[in-house]
Design a protein around this nucleic acid. Structure first.
Lengths: 262, 262
DNA sequence: GCGTGTGAACTCATTCACAGCC
DNA sequence: GGCTGTGAATGAGTTCACACGC
C-alpha cells in the first residue's frame, strides 16, 4: 500500500535566490504502478474534464460499496455524481474501464481501477508553505494523512515560528525548501502564504522540483507547462456565487427581464 | 498569516486614488444593476467560464490599483491572471466593458464594473449548516464578513450545541432553517456537515428558498436548475493533483529524462 | 428486456489574426 | 505605433440515439 519513502537525494544546498534554473533532480515518487490492465499500451490521453470527475465517481462508489451494492448502472452512478449517464460511460471507457451490457459496472472493480488511475494506492507527501492560521489548520487536519497525503514538512519565513512544532512537524525555514523537499521526498506543495507571497512560494516549490501545487490564495500563480496547480479560494467561490445570486434575484424582481424563458 | 484577502474595494468605499471616476455611493437599497449601463437592453448571457474568471481579474486589478496604475493593457492583466489576452478581452466585452484602443482599460472603472457585475456592492448574508470543526473555523474567519459575506446564522442538529454562541452568533436548530433563513434574509448557504448529511442539508436550504450553496463535503449535491452550487473539497483537489503527479512521474521514468525536453 | 459502448451532431470555449480606432 | 474589438478557425466536451452484447 504505502511504499517507503527513503531519502534518496540529499541536497545540502540552500538555494540562496541565486540559482536560476536549478536541478529538477528530485525524483521523489515511489513507484507508480500504471493501470495494471495491459502494460504495453500507449499512454491513454485522459481528458482534464474526465480527471476532475473521477474523484466524484469514486466518492459515490465508495458509498455504494458501503451499502453492499455489487454492481451499478451508469444511470445510478451518474445520478449520484450529478452528471449525464453518457458522460459517465465515456469517462470510464476513456480510462479503460468496461462494464457488462445489460448489467452495469462492478462496484469493487470500479473502486479499485479508479483508485489506481488517480494514484491513490500510494502516498504523496505534502509540504505546506506558510504556517499561519490556515497552514496550521491544514497541518492539523487528519483528513490529509488518512487520504494518503501526509503533511511531512512545514516552512515559513518568519524566524520566530521556525523551530517550533505544529502537528508533530518542526517548522523549517522557507529558504531551505529545496533541501526539505528532497529529504522528505515531497510530492505536493501547498501554498498557504499571504496572497502577495504566493508567486514566490510557487517559484521556489517548482525550483525544488515539485510539479503539483495546491494554491489557497486568491491570486493565480504562473507556472510552467509541466506543473499542475489547483486553486482553492473561499473568496473566489463566494464571488462567483454572488454573481448568480444577483442574477437570480434580479430576475425574481421581474424587471421586465424574463429569466427562464426558453 | 491567514490568506489575507484585502478588503476588496466594495463599491462605494472610496479608494482614494485619482478622483477621475465618480464612485457612486452605496445606494440605500443596493439595487442589483445589471452590468450594462444603458438600461432596457436584454440581459446579456455571461458565460460560466467568464464568470469564473472575473474574481481573478478583480484580484489582479485591485493589486494594480494599489500600485497606483491608472490603466492596464489586456496583455498585462492577462499575465497577472494567467489567461490568454484574447480571452480577457472577450470576457470584458461580454460584460459590456470597453477599453480604449491604443491605451488599454481604466483600472478604477474596471474594478468598479466587475464588482457591480459580481454583485459585490452589496452584502450577502450567509448561513452555515453544521457547526463542527470546519463550521466553527468558517464562522470565525473574518475574511467572510470583510468580503461582504457576513455569517449571520448557524444551525446544527446536535442539541448539545444548539444555544451556544460561536463567533457571536447563537447556534440554532437545524429544523428551524426556514425560519432562520427568512428572519436573517440569508442569501448563501454553506454546507459544513458530515458528507452523509450533505444532501439533506442542501434540500432544506433549497426548501428555505436559497439558490446559492457552497458545499464543503466531498459528495456532490443534486439541486434544481435554478440553484447554484460550488464545491470546495480538499480531498477532491488532492486526488486530481495525484493523477497528474502520477502521470508526470510515470512519464519521467519512462523517458529517463527530466520533464522539460527542448 | 436491459444497459453498455460509441458514431455523430451539437454546443461551447479558446485562440489566432487582423481590421479599426486612439 | 499600440492596443482594443471581433470574425473565423480550431478544438474540446457534452449529449443524443441507437446498434450490440448480455
Amino acid at each position: 500500500m504505502l511504499p517507503t519513502l527513503r531519502p534518496v537525494t540529499r541536497a545540502g544546498e540552500a538555494t540562496n535566490e541565486g540559482s536560476s534554473e536549478s536541478t529538477p533532480s528530485v525524483a521523489p515518487s515511489p513507484l507508480a504502478r500504471q493501470s495494471d490492465a495491459s502494460a504495453g499500451e500507449p499512454a491513454r490521453r485522459v481528458s482534464d474534464a474526465t480527471v476532475s470527475r473521477l474523484p466524484v465517481y469514486l466518492q459515490g462508489l465508495v458509498s455504494l460499496a458501503g451499502e453492499g451494492a455489487a454492481s451499478v448502472s451508469s444511470e445510478s452512478l451518474a445520478d449520484l455524481s450529478a452528471v449525464n449517464p453518457a458522460t459517465l460511460r465515456r469517462d470510464l471507457a476513456g480510462i479503460g474501464i468496461t462494464g457488462t451490457r445489460g448489467v452495469g459496472y462492478d462496484v469493487k472493480y470500479l473502486v479499485h481501477e479508479i483508485s489506481v488511475v488517480l494514484g491513490l494506492n500510494q502516498e504523496w507527501p505534502v509540504i505546506i508553505v506558510g504556517v499561519g492560521n490556515l497552514g496550521r489548520a491544514l497541518a492539523n487536519y487528519e483528513g490529509l494523512a488518512t487520504q494518503g497525503f501526509p503533511v511531512q514538512a512545514l516552512v515559513d519565513i518568519d524566524s520566530s515560528i521556525v523551530g517550533s512544532a505544529v502537528a508533530g512537524v518542526v517548522v523549517e525555514h522557507f529558504d531551505d525548501i529545496s533541501a526539505v523537499v528532497a529529504r522528505e521526498a515531497i510530492s505536493v506543495g501547498v501554498i498557504a502564504t499571504p496572497a502577495a507571497a504566493a508567486q514566490e512560494a510557487a517559484q521556489h516549490l517548482i525550483d525544488a522540483g515539485l510539479a503539483s501545487l495546491l494554491n489557497f490564495t486568491p491570486v493565480p500563480v504562473v507556472v510552467p507547462d509541466h506543473v499542475q496547480v489547483r486553486g482553492v479560494d473561499l473568496a473566489t467561490e463566494l464571488q462567483i456565487l454572488s454573481f448568480y445570486q444577483q442574477r437570480s434575484t434580479a430576475a425574481a424582481r421581474g424587471t421586465g427581464l424574463p429569466l427562464g424563458t426558453p
